[in-house]
Design a protein around this nucleic acid. Structure first.
Lengths: 126, 126
DNA sequence: GTAAGCGGTTACGTTGAGGTAAGGAGATCA
DNA sequence: TGATCTCCTTACCTCAACGTAACCGCTTAC
């Protein structure tokens, strides 16, 4: 996601924070429960270690998530959502609901076009 | 904005629709009042004709805006927001509000860090 | 006749987010 | 001693969004 120049409306800022390809998924997963690095790798199938580490660090810098290193026999790092992160998750939810509506609308549109296509084929063959 | 694969949550779909660099601005302007192509060019200082035309066409295909050609002596094309477009504008507004909060928070954080820096300088020079 | 405004389109170059693959430090296991 | 697990880092590459600049048909104004 390109870091847009901050415009007057705040939306660009929000996109700068959450626009990364995996960030909404990361935030969602961490919001469900604190997650470890390797756990996230497994859950978010397809993300590379490089990008995961990178986006986690950016989200930490933006106060969306908290990184905690637990002392123990093996290295253990846990990421959890901050209150601020949860507040963003809510705003993302509103957009996601709209996205759902869009998907349904576009599916209907595609269906209608398929029907029209079918009708044209019948008219043509008659 | 890269067209992301549609995930389960709908957010990616929403981003695919509104993620273009100028689309929120376009939607906002058109929501205020119907606008002509040249008008948008002037209002959105910095957008190129190519990208403006491209994003307008994508937004039209997504039913966010309506393109109307008015017959007359000079060519006249008007873009206006659809009801669906207005509904997206609302969801964008929620994200924008969050973005505003983020900006304020980060400004405060930067201020605090500047203060700490100043204190360190004083301690060092003493 | 030519300049200028409208609403574009086209070819080409740039840039940066994300992907790939490899390495690496510290600890445990066999 | 080497293999394996964890949590990363680094160098390099790819690809699509965006920018630049030129051109287009149409019309009116000078």
């Amino acid at each position: 996601m390109k870091r847009l120049p901050d415009d007057d409306c705040g939306f660009a800022s929000a996109l700068n924070v959450i626009g990364g390809k995996w960030k909404t998924d990361i935030l969602w997963e961490i919001n469900v429960a604190p997650r470890r690095f390797g756990e996230l790798r497994r859950i978010l199938a397809g993300v590379s270690e490089k990008v995961l580490a990178q986006q986690l660090r950016e989200m930490e810098a933006d106060d969306l998530i908290r990184r905690e290193v637990f002392p123990g026999k093996v290295q253990r790092v846990e990421y959890s959502a901050t209150e601020f992160g949860r507040s963003l998750n809510h705003a993302v939810g509103v957009m996601a609901d709209w996205g759902k509506g869009y998907e349904i609308r576009m599916a209907q549109k595609a269906e209608e076009q398929a029907e029209e296509q079918a009708e044209r084929s019948i008219a043509l063959s008659a």
